[in-house]
Structure formats: structure tokens, C-alpha cells
Design a protein around this nucleic acid. Structure first.
Lengths: 151, 151
DNA sequence: GGCACTAGGTTGGATTTTCCAACTTAGTGA
DNA sequence: TCACTAAGTTGGAAAATCCAACCTAGTGCC
């Protein structure tokens, strides 16, 4: 059995690299924190949703909070790690809007009033960052690369 | 059967919302364009990889190009839509580095020389964009929302 | 008290996917 | 002829998914 190259992308995908996991996170970030809401709005079947929520909780991406003791009722919240996934969801939406949708089902706008159009910039030099401006330096020796090590 | 809310995130995930699909895209973006390289470096089993590559091709994310006629040999390339996914992969790496890795297996740096630290800015107003600065406007009527419609 | 209803799951069973190793096909190079 | 490569394909077992129905503990209504 081959495990692939050591890579944080692969590690991240082991946790959130699945449809229902990310859609559950989307719902929670929308403020729909309860099991039934998440199930209804994602379309995930309830048993699968249970296992996803449990594994996201185990991974530290969400927490399960009791908001009523009698009867016992729970809601799910994003942890800091979970909140840190929201931009990825926004990028997925931008990508879907750009390449898939006939007409985007949801319009996203910046609070400045303009339609959302994200640019990536370097925190240090302030310049726009494009994928080809990113250089990867490998710490482990077993990387196989055909081209220049950018991303 | 419930299909969940109409959403470009869900639409995008139908195409790339799976571990092996995104890891294959990662490899191709690294310049490893051949079947055996992709299989080896992702760890995907060859049959699954075949179905993923076919469906990514059908979705217009990659193309399959013959680079040798005799014997027949192929390589995979990213389309523009595929290249447009690379930032998502970089964000996944940042997320994994931040929340998962004891020590990131790969260091990413901007060509300016500093370690990669991405900021999202609005193309129009130039300000930094945080998830809570994004307002969603729903076109379809069947959205269920508990909180303010941000993302 | 009896009934309907809610939230947050579980359960059973059929169907799909995945995983893995072995095999195939068409060709090259020694 | 023999070994080897690239790009898959195949078979069979194991795991995951999907779906509807069920369960449990409680509330509100009459």
C-alpha cells in the first residue's frame, strides 16, 4: 500500500476532503447549527451526517454543545480551525460561480458594495500572489517532481 | 431524497470534493502529468484514479493529451478551470500547516522571499476581506438561515 | 391522561464505492 | 528472446453510502 507523498494538502483532505464534511461546515458557518437543519440543507443522510460531525469534532474543527438539558439538545459550532476554513468555502463558491453555474444561485458581495472578487496578496510584501509565485521547499527527501517546484 | 440547498459550493464539490480528485490536481499542477506518477505520488489506487481522471476530464478541469502514438502514451494537463483551483490547494496547505502538521512537510514561500502568508483583498476597494465581510444575496427563495447572511 | 410533535439521532438492508493485487496490451531496448 | 515501461483493466473482498423506518425523551395542547 502506498500512502502518497507527505503533504499538508493530503493531511487536510483526510479531514475535510469530502462533500458532506465541507457542506456541514458551510451550514454551521451560516448559523444553522442544529442537526436537522444541517441534514436538510446539505442533503446528507442522517447517519452519514452523524459520522461526519463526529469526525470533524474529533479533528477539532467543530464542537458539539448542549444547549438544553431536558430534553437533551445539541448544536454545533466552528472552532477557530473551523472558522479558518471559511475562506476555502468562499473560494469554492467563486470557482463554482466562475466555471459551473449558468447563473450563481447566490451572489456574494464585499461589504464595500462590490461583487466579491478576491485577490491574494502577500502579507509581507503586499504584492499580489499568483500560484506560480509560490515556491515550495521540500523537507522530506522523497519528493518526485517533474517541473519547477511551484504551486 | 433531498438535494440540499442550491449552492455553487455544493456544485463545485460534486466535481472536486474528493480526496483523490484534488490530489491528482495537485500532482498535475506540480508537473507530474503521467498516470504512474500521479498514482504513485497521491497513493490512489489505479482503478480509482482512472475514474477520477475521466470525470475531471468530463468536467473540463483537466485534459488528456496523447504525447506518443506508438506506443500510445498520455499525459494530463490542467485546463484554465483546473489552474483556477491551485489557490484552493494552497489554502488547504496553509490550513493543514496551521492546524494539523507537527512540522509542515513542505515550506511555501512567496517569490519575495518571505514565508507564504496569504491575505485576501477586495479587487475593487483593495481592503482586506474576512469571511464576515462577505454578504450573500440569495436568488432562490428556499434558503434557510439562522444568522446574518455572511460567510 | 392521551395524542401529536420535536430534536437528535440509530438501525437494517440494499446498493455503490473503494481497495488491492494481479493481469493485459502494445511497444522499446539489449 | 527477455526484461521492462506506461496506462490502464479486471476480479473479488471489504467498506462506505443511501434510504426509510424506527427510537427516545421530552413538550404542548386539549
Amino acid at each position: 500500500m502506498n500512502t502518497g507523498r507527505p503533504c499538508s494538502i493530503a493531511d487536510a483532505l483526510r479531514i475535510v476532503g469530502e462533500r458532506w464534511a465541507l457542506l456541514a461546515i458551510r451550514e454551521i458557518s451560516f448559523g444553522n447549527r442544529r442537526f436537522d437543519e444541517i441534514a436538510r440543507n446539505t442533503g446528507a443522510s442522517r447517519d452519514i451526517l452523524t459520522t461526519r460531525l463526529r469526525s470533524l469534532e474529533a479533528a477539532g474543527v467543530i464542537t458539539r454543545r448542549r444547549y438544553s438539558d431536558r430534553p437533551p439538545r445539541f448544536e454545533y459550532h466552528l472552532t477557530e480551525a473551523g472558522r479558518d476554513l471559511r475562506m476555502i468555502l468562499n473560494l469554492l463558491r467563486e470557482w463554482g460561480d466562475r466555471w459551473l453555474a449558468d447563473e450563481p444561485p447566490v451572489a456574494a458581495a464585499h461589504t464595500c458594495g462590490h461583487p466579491l472578487d478576491l485577490v491574494f496578496t502577500c502579507r509581507h510584501c503586499g504584492a499580489e500572489v499568483r500560484p506560480e509565485d509560490i515556491r515550495l521547499t521540500v523537507n522530506s527527501p522523497d519528493w518526485e517532481l517533474s517541473g519547477p517546484t511551484s504551486s
